[in-house]
Simulated scan of single mutants.
Amino acid sequence: MSLIAADLRHSRLADVNPVAKLAAALIMSVTLLMSIDPVSAGVTLAATLVLLPFAGLTARQLWYRLWPIVVGAGIAAIATVLYGRPSGTMYVEWGILRISDGSIDLALSIFLRVLAIAVPSVVLFATTDPTDLADGLAQILKLPARFVIGALAGLRLVGLLIEDWRELSLARRARGVADAGRLRRLAGQSFALLVLAIRRGTKLATAMEARGFGGSGPRTWARPSRLRWRDAGIVAIAIAIAAASVIAAIAAGTWRFILGL
């Protein structure tokens, strides 16, 4: 069963090969990691948001997936504003707390860069089925099949793990075990979930071994994974966005190659 949300299965990005999506995300991420400046990150983020409708993701769906990253980026930006290396005009200086032009600029750069790296990755992989990704990694990139299939099997058990946690909570509450001692309850329930996960993992490993997943011979694949012209288009768009962000930062005079700092 596909793990893509039902309303995202028919988006234009859903038919793109996951390997091409991975390459596109890496191109933009590596480019952003080469410099700490607000312009390049802002250009990448703006371009991604402009292309968001083609992915089929609404603003609400994007926020649901991104809010932990936004909160983390905000905390990092605030800490940088308050305790970053001072330079330029000093606005506040109180003990180790120093707010200056340099700390504000660095905080803005960090905040935008985190979002510019996270948003394209979330947009691209929200429309990616894990089975398609595993097929692409094993067939196109030639990664070890045992590792890829094992990771896929583990990923597909995440939903069962969440359901087990909910059922354990209801069962313990029905027995009156969950009435007091929140930390003690959390520790006991976590241990019970660990036992269930180990048992299920052992059974799954035995079943996969019986079906020949651990064989040393060449594998066959039910769904061939191939690269097509539309996949090259996604990579080309990523290269264009990365190039535009670098050119804009250099033109604005904000480009700071990170190895040169």
Results as ranks from 00 to 15, higher is better:
Leu62Ile: 06
Arg12Ser: 12
Trp94Tyr: 14
Ala76Ile: 05
Arg12Tyr: 06
Leu259Arg: 12
Tyr64Phe: 13
Leu141Thr: 03
Arg226Tyr: 02
Gln61Cys: 03
Ile36Phe: 13
Ala187Phe: 11
Gly74Pro: 05
Val235Met: 09
Trp255Asp: 11
Ala192Val: 06
Arg98Trp: 08
Thr254Gln: 11
Val16Asn: 10
Leu227Asp: 02
Val148Glu: 05
Ala151Asn: 11
Glu93Lys: 13
Val246Leu: 15
Ser109Glu: 00
Ala153Phe: 05
Thr80Trp: 09
Leu66Val: 01
Val39Tyr: 02
Trp221Glu: 08
Ala180Lys: 14
Ala236Val: 11
Leu155Asn: 08
Gly188Ala: 15
Leu49Ala: 07
Val119Thr: 04
Arg98Glu: 13
Arg199Met: 02
Ile140Gly: 06
Asp231Pro: 11
Arg173Gln: 12
Ala236Arg: 12
Leu137His: 05
Pro53Tyr: 09
Ser103Phe: 06
Ile250Arg: 15
Ile110Gln: 02
Ser245Cys: 08
Gly72Leu: 15
Pro86Ala: 00
Leu82Cys: 10
Val177Tyr: 14
Leu186Lys: 12
Ala248Asn: 04
Ile162Asp: 04
Ala240Asp: 00
Val235Phe: 07
Gly95Gln: 01
Leu108Glu: 04
Ile162Val: 15
Leu160Phe: 04
Trp221Leu: 07
Leu13Val: 02
Leu161Gln: 12
Thr128Val: 00
Thr80Ser: 13
Ser245Ala: 15
Leu259Cys: 08
Ser121Cys: 00
Ser169Ile: 00
Ala59Tyr: 14
Trp165Leu: 10
Ile110Arg: 05
Leu155Ala: 01
Val235Asp: 01
Ala210Asp: 09
Tyr83Ile: 03
Ala14Phe: 01
Leu183Pro: 05
Val39Lys: 03
Thr58Pro: 04
Leu45Asn: 01
Ala116Tyr: 03
Gly188Arg: 15
Ile149Trp: 14
Leu196Phe: 05
Ala205Arg: 11
Phe54Pro: 06
Phe54Lys: 15
Ala210Cys: 04
Leu115Gln: 11
Arg211Tyr: 00
Ala47Gly: 12
Leu57Gly: 10
Ala249Arg: 10
Gly72Pro: 07
Thr254His: 11
Ser109Phe: 09
Gly42Glu: 12
Leu160Gly: 09
Leu3Tyr: 09
Gly56Phe: 07
Trp63His: 08
Val114Asn: 05
Leu259Thr: 15
Gly102Asn: 02
Ala251Met: 15
Leu193Ala: 13
Pro130Ala: 11
Asp164His: 02
Ala23Phe: 12
Gln139Cys: 08
Ile117Ala: 09
Val122Lys: 06
Arg98Pro: 03
Arg146Trp: 09
Gly212Ala: 00
Arg9Ile: 12
Pro18Arg: 10
Pro38Trp: 12
Ser245Asn: 03
Ala240Lys: 07
Arg184Ala: 14
Met28Asn: 13
Leu168Asp: 06
Ile162Pro: 01
Pro53Glu: 07
Arg113Asn: 00
Phe125Thr: 01
Lys203Met: 03
Ala24Arg: 04
Tyr64Asp: 13
Gly56Asn: 06
Asp15Tyr: 08
Leu57Ile: 08
Trp229Ile: 13
Val19Tyr: 04
Ile241Glu: 01
Val119His: 10
Ile239Gln: 04
Ala76Met: 13
Ala242His: 02
Ser29Thr: 15
Trp255Ala: 09
Ser40Val: 08
Ala107Arg: 00
Met1Phe: 10
Lys142Glu: 11
Val123Cys: 01
Ala107Leu: 01
Val70His: 01
Ala24Leu: 06
Gly154Asp: 07
Ala205Met: 09
Thr220Met: 05
Val177Arg: 14
Ala47Pro: 05
Leu45Tyr: 10
